[in-house]
Computed example of a mutant assay.
Amino acid sequence: MNIADYAENKVQSRSKYISQFTSGWDDYKGPNLDDLPGNEGEEFLERLRKSVYEGEDVKDGDPHETFRYYKGIPDGIGVRR
């Protein structure tokens, strides 16, 4: 599904996970990127934008959202269709 109109929303929502992908893992101060040391917040946003706008889900120059379909119980254990 083409998400070109909503790609920046995806970047912003993913940026709230700073505790998992930045130095916030060791020293969490909240979801504000400005609280990260130095220019780490800006670098993190740039990595996110690159993954959304240039990543593997880009088709014909537009970012896309892909979906996975599983057969089996809801936690994903099962056979992929």
Rank of each mutant, 00 (worst) to 15 (best):
N2L: 02
I3R: 11
D5T: 09
D5W: 03
D5A: 12
A7C: 04
E8I: 03
E8F: 02
E8P: 04
N9K: 12
N9L: 13
N9C: 00
K10L: 11
V11T: 08
V11Y: 02
V11P: 01
V11R: 02
V11W: 09
Q12T: 01
Q12D: 10
Q12S: 10
S13G: 01
S13T: 10
R14W: 05
R14M: 08
S15R: 05
K16A: 04
K16W: 02
K16C: 06
Y17H: 14
Y17W: 14
Y17A: 15
I18Y: 00
I18V: 13
I18S: 00
I18P: 02
Q20H: 12
Q20Y: 09
F21W: 05
F21Y: 13
F21I: 08
T22I: 14
T22D: 11
S23P: 07
G24F: 02
G24K: 00
W25K: 14
W25S: 11
D26L: 05
D26Y: 03
D26R: 03
D26K: 03
D27E: 07
D27K: 09
D27M: 11
Y28L: 10
Y28N: 10
K29L: 14
P31R: 12
N32C: 03
N32H: 02
L33R: 04
D34I: 07
D34A: 15
D35L: 15
D35R: 06
L36F: 11
L36S: 11
L36M: 12
L36N: 09
P37I: 10
P37S: 13
G38W: 14
G38T: 10
E40M: 04
G41W: 12
G41T: 14
G41E: 13
G41R: 06
E42G: 02
E42P: 08
E42Y: 04
E43A: 15
E43P: 07
E43Y: 10
L45Y: 04
L45T: 10
L45K: 15
E46T: 15
R47W: 05
L48V: 00
L48P: 01
K50T: 01
S51C: 12
S51I: 09
S51N: 12
Y53C: 00
E54W: 02
E54V: 05
E54M: 04
E54I: 07
G55D: 00
G55W: 00
G55Q: 01
E56F: 08
E56T: 05
D57Y: 12
V58Q: 03
V58H: 01
K59N: 07
K59G: 01
K59C: 09
K59D: 08
G61I: 09
D62T: 07
H64V: 12
H64W: 15
H64Q: 06
E65G: 01
E65I: 06
T66A: 03
T66Q: 08
T66G: 10
R68P: 02
R68G: 10
Y69K: 01
Y70K: 05
K71L: 13
G72E: 11
I73E: 06
I73M: 05
I73R: 06
P74F: 15
P74K: 14
P74M: 12
D75I: 11
D75P: 04
I77Q: 07
I77Y: 00
G78Y: 13
R80L: 14
